[in-house]
Design a protein around this nucleic acid. Structure first.
Lengths: 220, 220, 220, 220
DNA sequence: GATGAATGAGAGTTCATTCAT
DNA sequence: CATGAATGAACTCTCATTCAT
């Protein structure tokens, strides 16, 4: 926002403080509506419905986002950004770093990060610079959480950031048609079970099953 | 009984005069194609494409399955049934019951049970008797696996069958647009992490974090 | 039927009495089913449904009638023929010739002659020789009824055979979707009202309204 | 009042901001096209064709009328309404009340009221309040015409409004595939014959045939 | 700048007709 | 010969996107 403001000032545009007031509001409402409806109905929800929920005409939506990809981009960006915020908040926790990591994971679930999964399939530019940057920020933040937990001997040493994010996303993916903006108890329970699997045992807990794990990999 | 049967057939069995070898083959191919494409492209894949992949005309598909719901029903039934078979196979394992359970979970992933998730959202009768029966069979089989592992002290005692099946399904849900009939290494890894969380510790491992868990529940 | 038998004998075909037994029966059942369903559901009824009602496979229907036009042709022929039979029966009445004509008109309604109307629109050859001949026979029979009634001074002298047949057909046209093989009381009442309009008055009844009739023609 | 209206518009009339001149025009054109094509091709005419005739895209038709039933509803309403107008015009006639009734019947034929018959079979809500109201209006108007003609001794006393409307509708039902928006002479002739049957004789004309009528009812 | 309306391309489903058993 | 199955063309309806007000 700083950047935008400075640029505007630099080009010596007239203030134009007014015309943006409701326009920005509209844009905001569209993104919010889109996020909710992507969660509720999946990524194929009719855009006219999104516009209706946002309380604007469909053409207004298209003025702000030329096509579905643009809107998806914005929603993914917004969710990623909010999730990153949660990661950074958790990073400020003073206590047990594994608890901090856990807190982040549950908070990310509440941001409905899982709803992004189906959008990663296509129809929009996954590698858009803006998105890459935001994802990098998220990964760095989580990297911090993971690193600290690992250093403290509270997290298994074979866990990567990707493990956490992907599994978290999958576990919180909504079922289309189920109207539910809030992750339910049941899902938080599964997240916790997963987290339990990440926790480092007092001693080397895995050694016992290591052989059989290899065996499992050779299934079928 | 053979004699009786042959006699009946020879005398007067006016209905179902022939099993129509090719028709059955077609039906089979349609279900197979549908399963693959549901995995690959999600539950909204155009049925014409399914027919094309099956190598039949679209009307042939509609003759066998009057609408999408009917086809979905059949696919769900087939996957459930195959998954149950895996559960029963695993139940025959002689060794460590937790390993048996784990083996089943990985095998179920390979059956792409996760692909069923989006279909559960609607568009077909989830409570069809045929489906209920099959689901019951699956649950019973898994119940056996879970019970034995628990009795052996190898599984946490706060785990229910539903936990296993739902988390398993979510973790293996395919990303539409990613052509992949085989669950990849990465996914098996996440499944294993989740299983690790289910394993009972030598001592009561959870006591240490119990208080903080409560704390986590109070997130938001 | 006489004609057919004589032809067969004249060409000295081998008897071939057997193979036709059930084939003819099938053909008959198809025509009957078609007549009923044309009456009930209109001329666009799916031919597969006709075959089902006839209790034969659809291909059997197509073997007997290469396309819808052929089947329609046969049904129109059959109804026309039966209607002609009614006309000839009525011609044998000894009593009042207007009553005889009326009796025919009501009987023709019961044959569902009105069901033929929508078939005259297209999709089959209205001027097929076989049909022309049958129609000629019908017209001649009705001509006889009309002529006698007129000669007896019981029928208005400005009525033509076409007036009777067309109006009769229109008044008895079934409403698709209304399952009713028997013309109802209400329809017979309308037919009777129409017949009342055809009856010659004791004196020249029309003279009074002749002027105003001309006036009516100048409506709007 | 002009002032008031303008003020209201100027101040705050947030809903229905404009009558959208062209949209109304489109809707009108669709209904007109539909009426014509229902008459010409029957109630199953492809809606895409209707849209083409109306000069709009098919989706525009579907925007205005969500499904065929909605369009049928509108057409039935329009024809009923116009027919009622004709009835009320005829009711203003000063002369012979039977002539007035006759004038209405011929005028209703020109409105193609008969084209509605096949639509009454199903596919739309026959008992929609809007339609019931309009039909009631029509029946009342015709009731007036019939009542006056009867009081004047010009109409048979055993005639009901339903007789007139149903017979009229049947007699003017178009033959699908015959492009003809104007009822032809021939049809008007049949209507007139029917009307002749409704006219009260100078003396009690029916007594002579009463017995035989009973006889006719015993046909079959 | 915002809106409602318009559009064409596409998906699901049905049906007349043909084919293989 | 009779049958069930297969097929492609046609029709209804939806939706992303563009246009006129």
């Amino acid at each position: 926002m700083d950047t935008v403001a400075r640029t505007a000032a630099g080009t010596a545009q007239p203030r134009t403080p007014r015309p943006r007031a409701d326009a920005l509001r509209n844009r905001e409402r569209i993104v919010t509506a889109a996020r909710e409806m992507f969660v509720e109905f999946g990524p194929d929800v009719p855009l006219d419905e999104v516009a209706r929920r946002a309380g604007v005409g469909n053409a207004t939506l298209y003025r702000n986002f030329p096509d579905r990809a643009a809107l998806t981009h914005e929603v993914v960006l917004a969710v990623t950004s909010r999730t990153t915020d949660r990661a950074e908040e958790a990073a400020n926790d003073e206590g047990d770093p594994f608890i901090a990591l856990s807190r982040f994971v549950h908070a990310a679930a509440d941001e409905r990060i899982g709803a992004l999964c189906p959008m990663l399939s296509g129809g929009f530019d996954k590698d858009h610079p803006e998105l890459l940057a935001e994802r990098r920020r998220l990964e760095e933040a989580v990297e911090g959480l993971v690193g600290r937990a690992m250093s403290a001997g509270r997290l298994r040493t074979d866990i990567a950031v990707g493990d956490v994010l992907v599994a978290l996303s999958q576990l919180t993916r909504p079922l289309p048609g189920i109207a539910c903006m809030n992750i339910d108890r049941f899902t938080h329970r599964h997240i916790q079970l997963f987290l339990d699997g990440l926790e480092a045992p007092a001693r080397s807990r895995l050694t016992g099953t290591a052989a059989t794990l290899e065996d499992l990999r050779r299934r079928t």
